[in-house]
């Protein structure tokens, strides 16, 4: 009967309250953060290291988390900043698509998803890299971290309408690339 006192009631509602302990939130958000970082950085090793850094930072700062805003926005702000820091320090390294998802042990793959080839994912990565930095950030947070528009806005410190527009333009551009079948 582990009833929470007040369940999160939605990111935009005024009475949002996150009452779950850190470990429970970790269990829920690890997959999303790990997936997000694995999409963003070239090597899975780096992505996993960054995931570790994100949750260690989150634990250290957990007392500062207000709980009146969604945990998703908070943890992904840490994740995104960690990623940005990492990229700043590793600016000279090009994204090596061979490392992205390459040589991944089978036990980390869901069987039903194995039908998707790495080639398809590489292609998507190629195309995302052709977008602007803003578009890439928004689409990654929106569709790979699975954040809501309002949460992406919080993470990136932009307005919701701005995120909607960036997302829309990014999707249009991506769509055209798919239609043309190119990654140039």
């Amino acid at each position: 009967m582990g009833m929470a006192m007040k369940q999160p009631s939605g990111p935009s509602s005024g009475d949002y309250y996150e009452s779950r302990p850190f470990t429970e939130l970790y269990d829920e958000y690890f997959d999303r953060v790990n997936r997000y970082l694995r999409c963003r950085v070239q090597s899975t090793w780096d992505a996993d290291d960054l995931t570790t850094v994100v949750f260690l930072k989150a634990l250290e700062k957990f007392e500062q988390y207000s709980r009146t805003s969604p945990f998703a926005s908070w943890i992904f702000r840490i994740a995104h900043n960690t990623y940005v820091d990492f990229m700043r320090k590793n600016r000279e390294l090009p994204v090596d698509q061979e490392d992205f998802l390459g040589a991944e042990p089978d036990d980390t793959w869901q069987p039903e998803r194995q039908a998707l080839t790495n080639e398809e994912i590489r292609l998507l990565r190629d195309r995302l890299d052709l977008l602007s930095q803003d578009q890439r950030d928004v689409l990654m947070l929106r569709y790979f971290a699975d954040l809501k528009i309002s949460q992406v806005a919080e993470v990136l410190g932009k307005t919701e309408s701005s995120i909607k527009m960036i997302s829309y333009r990014g999707l249009q551009k991506l769509q055209k690339m798919y239609e043309r079948g190119d990654s140039e």
Binding site: R35, T108, L124, F144
Partner: peptide, 11 residues
């Protein structure tokens, strides 16, 4: 695509 990105459950 998102669903196809593996998660490191050991980590």
């Amino acid at each position: 695509m998102r669903g196809s990105v593996p998660v490191n459950y050991q980590l």
